[in-house]
Design a protein around this nucleic acid. Structure first.
Length: 195
DNA sequence: AGTGAGATGGCCT
DNA sequence: GGCCATCTCACTA
């Protein structure tokens, strides 16, 4: 289980989004245990020229501060007054782009198959609630094993053919950008947020 | 299966 | 004041 180095995140955002699929998100809980889950669905947000992105038009605010950090940091924000969303910052300080983690599959999968109603990690708000990811986890260094949040890779392999691309969810306000195929997920994975 | 409304509060104009 | 990178529940059928 190798941790992903910071330069993994400095590349083109759509490329990193593809690369994150199949990787393992590690969350340290209150007891110091590491909870692992496989990333199965993501969305890319392309910064100052992407009307769906929080940093569209170089909007620097208190909320978006973490998006202006170097690639490899976390960006966590509150949405609808109720749910948090976890993002991975990409590229560099000059390019505030990020990837939304929309769904994960808890590991190990040596457990009885879950009923649909038990799936608590098949959505960006749900997975943050499940793992207690909040503003306290904003701006963390995901390439450091000492962080409460980091990402590693195991022997799980993802082929390009297994990745499906389609428009992003919940960004209809963004005009034409709402149709850009920047949502990526692993075909046939049961933890996908929607079909 | 599909639709619609409400919860709830920070963020931005 | 209006909008939101969401989710659940209550309804229809």
């Amino acid at each position: 289980m190798n941790i992903l180095p910071q330069d993994f995140y400095e590349r083109d955002t759509a490329t990193v989004a593809h690369g994150l699929l199949g990787k393992v998100l590690c969350v340290r809980n209150d007891d110091g245990e590491i909870l692992r889950s496989r990333i199965v669905e993501v969305e890319a947000y392309l910064g100052v020229e992407d009307p769906a992105c929080h940093t569209f038009n170089d909007r620097r605010t208190e909320r978006t501060k973490s998006m202006y950090l170097h690639g490899g940091h976390s960006y966590v924000y509150l949405i609808y007054g109720m749910y948090h969303c976890l993002n991975v910052v990409t590229r560099t300080e000059e390019h505030p782009e990020a990837i939304l983690i929309r769904a994960v599959e808890p590991l190990p999968h040596h457990q009885p198959p879950l009923k649909k109603k038990d799936m608590k990690t098949n959505g960006p708000g749900k997975l943050c609630k499940f793992y207690d990811i909040t503003k306290k986890d904003d701006g963390l260094r995901l390439w450091k094993k000492s962080s409460d949040l980091y990402i590693v890779e195991d022997s799980f392999e993802v082929l390009e053919k297994q990745i499906h691309a389609c428009p992003r969810i919940g960004v209809d306000y963004a005009g034409e950008a709402a149709r850009w195929p920047l949502r990526f997920y692993l075909k046939d994975n049961p933890y996908i947020s929607r079909k």
